[in-house]
Design a protein around this nucleic acid. Structure first.
Length: 464
RNA sequence: UCCGCGGUAGCUCAAUGGUAGAGCGAGUGGCUGUUAACCACUAUGUUGCAGGUUCGAGUCCUGCCCGCGGAGCCA
C-alpha cells in the first residue's frame, strides 16, 4: 500500500527518498522536448506547489499528461527527490500519473495569470483554488482554531446560542425576519399581520448577537463564549461589512472592565502570534503582494502592550490635533472613521483600547459609571480596519438597568428573562464581541471583507 | 442609503461622434532541467440593459442594473 502524503509534506526535504502518492489540482505544466514535463500541483495543504517530473516513457504521457492544464485533478505516484533546479527543495519523479478530471482550458475561468479579486468573487466556487483566497482561508482557519484554544485553555465554556431569536429589539441593527407565513396571502387581523399563525407564534428574526444569551450562561457557569454566524440586514455597502458574518463573544462573571480589556488584549496578541508562527508561507505572500508592513506590524503588536485611553482623553487628543476633520469633534459625539484612523495610525501607531464612553451613544446594557455621564464601554481600534472589538462591563444593578432601557425607549417587559439575571443573584460581569472577518482582514492586509469569508453575503448578492 | 468613478475579446485595459485595438490567457508550431518559462503565427466581440439625439453612437442624453472608492451604520 503506497502512502499518501500532502503537498506540504512532499515539499519538505525530510520527504526525500520516500515513495509516495499525492493528489491535487494542476496549476501549470511546462514541457521539455528533451522528453519530459513539469507539473505544478497544489492540494491546498500549503501555499506552495509540488513540482512533478513526468518522463515521456509513461504510458499515458502523450495521450493524457500533455493534455493537462490548469485546474485538472490528478493522482501521482513516485519518488520524492532533491530538486536540482532552483525554486523548490524537492520534486516528485512520477511513476504513474492518473487523471481524475481535465479542465477544458477554453472554458475554465481560472487562467494561468493574475486575476482581479472582483472577478474571482464572481466565481466564488472556484476561487479557493487561487493563491490569495487559499491563503486567506488557511489564515481564517488558523485564527478560528487559535480563538478556540485561547478560550478553552482559560476554562471558558463554548456555548451554542440560538440563530433564531424572537427578541426584535436588541438594538444592534436591522434584522432579517424568519417566517413560514404565506407572503402572497398573508393572514391578517385588523389589517396587521397575524403572527399567531407564524411558526413561533410571534415575529422572529436571525440573531444579530449572542451576547444576551451568553450573559445568561456566564451568570451560572462563570465564563462562556459564543462563536457563530450573526446577521445584519443593513443596506451597507462597504469593504468592512457583511450581511452574514462570524462573531466571537466571550462573557465573564465576576469581571470588570479592566479584566475585560486585559482579556481582549491577551486574545488578540495570542492569536496574532500563533498565525505568525503557524502560517508563515501564507503570511509571507500577503506581506509581499498586499502590504509590506503586515508582518512587521503584527510582530510589533505581539511584542508590546496596547495603548489604553479614555474616550475623554481621545477627544482631547483629537481636538488638539494639528488638522481639521470632516466631522467636528466635541465631547459627546461618536467617533468617526477618520477619528479612529487618526488615533491608531498617527497618534499611537498600534492598537488602542478606548473606554468610558458617554452613556448617550452606547447601548442600555453597559454599566454606568459613578459620574453618571459615562459607561464602562471599551472599543479596541486597530490601524486600517478600525473597530475590531466592542465590549463593556454589563450593568448588573436591576433598577439602573431598567432605567437605562426606558431611557432608550425599550420596554423592560420584553427583556424579562435578561432582567431576571439581575433580579436573582446578580454579579458584576463583562464581555465583548470580536468580528472574525475583521481580524482576518487585519492580519492578512486584505482590503475587502468579501475576500476573507468563503461565500460573502452582501445586499443583492447570495449567488453561491 | 448618500457622494464620486466605472462597465468594450476569457481576463486587465485602450479607442478627437466616422472601418473596435493591445497585453495576458487560449489554439498551432518551434525551443529549453523548466519554474509568472521563452520565440513565431492564428482566432477572438450583441461595447452592461432599455430607450433617445444624429447621415452616423463604444463615445452625447435619459432611465435601470451591476461593480469599485469614500461616507453613514457597525463587528
Amino acid at each position: 500500500m503506497i502512502e499518501k502524503i500532502s503537498v506540504a509534506d512532499a515539499r519538505r526535504e525530510s520527504a526525500v527518498g520516500r515513495r509516495v502518492m499525492i493528489e491535487g489540482w494542476v496549476r501549470t505544466r511546462r514541457d521539455s522536448k528533451a522528453g519530459f514535463s513539469f507539473l505544478e500541483v497544489n492540494d491546498g495543504s500549503c501555499f506552495g506547489n509540488v513540482q512533478i517530473l513526468v518522463e515521456q516513457g509513461l504510458a499515458n504521457y502523450e495521450t493524457e499528461v500533455l493534455r493537462l492544464t490548469a485546474g485538472a485533478s490528478v493522482r501521482v505516484v513516485g519518488n520524492v527527490q532533491a530538486s536540482p533546479g532552483k525554486g523548490q527543495a524537492t520534486e516528485l519523479a512520477a511513476e504513474e500519473v492518473m487523471v481524475y478530471g481535465f479542465a477544458d482550458p477554453e472554458h475554465y475561468p481560472l487562467q494561468k495569470k493574475r486575476h482581479s479579486l472582483e472577478f474571482l468573487r464572481q466565481i466564488a466556487h472556484l476561487r479557493p483554488r487561487t493563491n490569495t483566497i487559499g491563503a486567506a482561508m488557511r489564515v481564517r482557519n488558523a485564527i478560528s482554531f487559535s480563538l478556540h484554544r485561547f478560550f478553552q485553555e482559560r476554562g471558558f465554556l463554548y456555548v451554542h446560542t440560538p440563530i433564531i431569536t424572537a427578541s426584535d429589539c436588541e438594538g444592534a441593527g436591522e434584522m432579517f425576519q424568519v417566517t413560514t407565513l404565506n407572503l402572497v396571502d398573508t393572514p391578517r387581523i385588523d389589517g396587521k399581520v397575524d403572527y399567531s399563525q407564524d411558526f413561533f407564534d410571534r415575529p422572529s428574526y436571525l440573531t444579530v448577537s449572542g451576547q444576551l444569551e451568553a450573559e445568561a450562561f456566564a451568570c451560572g457557569l462563570g465564563k462562556a463564549y459564543t462563536f457563530g454566524p450573526t446577521f445584519r440586514a443593513e443596506n451597507s455597502n462597504t469593504a468592512r461589512h457583511l450581511a452574514e458574518f462570524w462573531m466571537v463573544e466571550p462573557e465573564m462573571a465576576f469581571c470588570d472592565l479592566q479584566g475585560n480589556m486585559d482579556l481582549a488584549e491577551a486574545l488578540l496578541r495570542q492569536v496574532f502570534s500563533e498565525v505568525l508562527s503557524g502560517c508563515g508561507e501564507d503570511m509571507a505572500f500577503f506581506n509581499q503582494f498586499l502590504d509590506p508592513t503586515t508582518i512587521e506590524t503584527l510582530d510589533g503588536i505581539v511584542a508590546e502592550p496596547f495603548e489604553r485611553m479614555t474616550y475623554t482623553e481621545a477627544i482631547r487628543l483629537l481636538r488638539n490635533a494639528d488638522r481639521t476633520f470632516e466631522f467636528p469633534v466635541e465631547w459627546g459625539v461618536d467617533l468617526q472613521s477618520e477619528h479612529e484612523r487618526y488615533l491608531t495610525e498617527e497618534v499611537v501607531r498600534k492598537p488602542v483600547i478606548l473606554c468610558d464612553y458617554p452613556r448617550t451613544i452606547k447601548p442600555f446594557y453597559m454599566r454606568m459609571n459613578d459620574d453618571e455621564a459615562t459607561v464602562r464601554a471599551m472599543d479596541v481600534l486597530v490601524p486600517k480596519v478600525g473597530e475590531i472589538i466592542g465590549g463593556s462591563q454589563r450593568e448588573e444593578r436591576l433598577e439602573v438597568l431598567e432605567g437605562r432601557m426606558k431611557e432608550q425607549g425599550l420596554n423592560p417587559e420584553d427583556y424579562w428573562w435578561y432582567l431576571d439575571l439581575r433580579r436573582y443573584g446578580t454579579v458584576p460581569h463583562a464581555g465583548f464581541g470580536l468580528g472574525l472577518e475583521r481580524v482576518v482582514q487585519f492580519v492578512t492586509g486584505i482590503a475587502n471583507i468579501r475576500e476573507v469569508i468563503p461565500f460573502p453575503r452582501t445586499p443583492g448578492n447570495a449567488e453561491f
